[in-house]
Design a protein around this nucleic acid. Sequence first.
DNA 1: ATAAACCTGACTAAAATAGTCAAGTATCTT
DNA 2: AAGATACTTGACTATTTTAGTCAGGTTTAT
Lengths: 141, 141
Amino acid sequence: MKLTSKGRYAVMALVDLAKFNNLNPVSLRDISIRQGISLDYLEQIFSKLRKKEIVQSVRGNQGGYVLNKKAKEIKLTNIFEAVDEKVKTLQCKKESKKGCNGKSTKCLTHNLWDELENHINDFFEKKSLEDLIKDNIERRL
Amino acid sequence: MKLTSKGRYAVMALVDLAKFNNLNPVSLRDISIRQGISLDYLEQIFSKLRKKEIVQSVRGNQGGYVLNKKAKEIKLTNIFEAVDEKVKTLQCKKESKKGCNGKSTKCLTHNLWDELENHINDFFEKKSLEDLIKDNIERRL
DNA sequence: ATAAACCTGACTAAAATAGTCAAGTATCTT
DNA sequence: AAGATACTTGACTATTTTAGTCAGGTTTAT
Ligand code: FES
Ligand code: FES
């Protein structure tokens, strides 16, 4: 079980962005340099974040990205969904009545993985971007 | 974030095995058929489980595997550790003082992933093989 | 003896990941 | 108007990981 860097970078970049509090757009170039993430890769990520209306783009010189919602309203769940970082512990399709082994009943562990998935999603549902920023400021003091 | 089938199979096979309550060894061949898992793959998995003393092997004709501890004492944590299914949400090395970006401080999200890792491991630490079997019996009623 | 079943290590196809690269388009500043 | 900055898109690719397979053993009950 690991987290992919796409999900990791998305959150990292958004925390960086959110710290500027919507005063003015932040360029991906700056984020790239500050966070050590490839610019081209960031572009892919922000393209997805924009489509899901998590950020807004400002084109042209001095442009960049701004949060499209309040930091409090952006949960990790939303971010992960936007960049396709899904939690997938079940092998089978959840809706299907078939098990992961191709049999007509769910496998011995189906229920366990389902619980696990919920357990993890709870965590993501509870954390907002605002929480992360606060946490970051506290640590600096 | 997904669970690999190695971890999934390990747990699935052990639940199957545990249901026989140590009365007599269960052959991998049987588990393979019942659970729809490749025999060769199961052998790899059980080799690791044996090295970590989670199961005991009985060689020869009518041989197979038996649990080496009480089902209550086998936590998911132990199983996952045995088959190298680790939860890895951090990018950096935990001990190192360097961040995942190569910089000398931890990245903006380091703490978040660390929390997440603990959150997930809590789940694994709480679940024993016995819990899974009970859960399975209840469902059948 | 022979068959069942464990044991080991090496090998490999396929999928996913983590990017790179190229060729734009829009808008601000001067 | 020109130039620079920065967003936008889509295709491409190297690397790594996963999920096995395969071949050739060894052990032990009957
Ligand atoms: S994970 Fe759903 S049936 Fe096995
Ligand atoms: S995950 Fe540890 S420093 Fe980034």
